[in-house]
Nucleic acid binder design. Structure first.
Lengths: 136, 136
DNA sequence: TTATTTTCCTATAGATTTAATAGGATAATC
DNA sequence: GATTATCCTATTAAATCTATAGGAAAATAA
């Protein structure tokens, strides 16, 4: 299941990407427009800023804005920041690899075998889609 | 993340599929061979039996065995029983569809748009792999 | 029959993760 | 100096996942 964090994060990014100008947009506006708890959204936008997707401005007329052009924001990077590893098991993860401690040899592991294919299929989708592709 | 339930279930199914004969295999043997808590595995095998993947026999010489041939067991059905919906959001699920209550119109929803592609990519993998393909 | 073995079944405890809230600090503008 | 809006940490609440407990039921063997 996709976490609400990711869901809300994607919606917020898309909302910002759909703006004509790059003027800061307030959290309250995004939250209201997308039906999201403002405080929860606040923490999400914070991590998006900390990870280089958004810029921010404080005080009156402040808010968040996209730093890059939507077509330069790959879904792989967004998903990794919001949802975590794209792989369903650590032993097939490119960016978060970990050996399974219970698995004697992963080359003969059926789960590894299947999840490798799943990972590749998902990567293919995320690599071929940018934020620009999500705008209605 | 793949749940341990699914991981263990897949390993158990693969172990049974790798057997030459279709003689019942005891929970204890599977648990030991795959490093799984026996009691936890017990409940997993029970749901696999209830969902038509396994047969069972009680008493001495009893255990679990595959009902169908491994190449007739599609990963789509296994994943749905063990892990639940293949889709990451209910609004793109084929078998567990639900409308998002917070989404005014899902045709213009960016999450829906992306997750539809993800779902299709995953279905493609699960449909093209059977239990037979997981055997080392 | 009686003992043994193994699955069957429900309930529940423990652990982890996710979702949401609280409350004030910081910085920019008016 | 007042107001506005982001910044930041901690904590609570809810949900889900993992594992265990403990006995019932059924099959086999003595």
């Amino acid at each position: 299941m996709l976490s609400k964090k990711t869901k809300y994060g994607l919606k917020a990014l898309t909302y910002l990407a759909s703006m004509d100008s790059k003027e800061p947009v307030q959290i309250a506006e995004i939250a209201k427009h997308e039906n999201i708890s403002q405080k929860f959204l606040e923490s999400i936008l914070l991590t998006l800023r900390r990870n280089g997707f958004l810029g921010s401005k404080k005080g009156k007329g402040g808010g968040y804005y996209l730093i890059k052009s939507p077509d330069e924001i790959q879904m792989t990077t967004v998903m990794r920041v919001l949802e975590g590893p794209i792989a369903m098991v650590p032993c097939v993860s490119l960016n978060f690899y970990e050996k399974c401690e219970d698995c004697p040899n992963q080359d003969q592991c059926s789960v590894n075998k299947l999840m490798l294919k799943v990972r590749d299929a998902n990567l293919e989708v995320y690599r071929n889609n940018t934020l620009a592709d999500l705008i209605p």
